[in-house]
Design a protein around this nucleic acid. Structure first.
Length: 108
DNA sequence: CAACACAAAGTAG
DNA sequence: CTACTTTGTGTTG
């Protein structure tokens, strides 16, 4: 059953005036399996812009389907969380990752 | 042109 | 390790 939730989300994206870059970033982010994380660099590479990791961040930050797209699963290459526009900022991001099963360091 | 949810390599301590 | 600098990229203002 969870085969095609992505298609439904992508359909919604079509209503927004987003650039190809943003749509590609959101698609790649949406493709992240539960309990896993992706780096900005991996997302950029996946969409064909291996050096635009910075642009990836800009795209995610404006992400129109915020909680629908797992933007909290995107972290820095160093394994750190990085920033987050959602609720609670980085704190909420880390919290979501813990709930999903991603290993987090103890000390909050 | 400046700034940004980053990355990597460089210099300095 | 911390801290700063420079280069690179796409979007936004």
């Amino acid at each position: 059953m969870e085969g095609s939730k992505k298609a439904a989300v992508m359909k919604r994206l079509e209503k927004y005036n987003m650039t190809r870059f943003q749509t590609s970033v959101l698609r790649a982010t949406l493709d992240i399996p539960k309990g896993e994380v992706r780096t900005y660099k991996q997302i950029a590479a996946k969409i064909g812009h291996p050096k635009a990791y910075r642009a990836v961040g800009s795209a995610l930050k404006e992400n129109p389907l915020a909680p629908t797209i797992p933007c909290h699963r995107v972290v820095k290459s160093s394994g750190e969380l990085g920033n987050y526009s959602g609720r609670g900022g980085k704190k909420g991001k880390r919290r979501l990752l813990e709930i999903e099963g991603y290993i987090i360091k103890k000390n909050r």
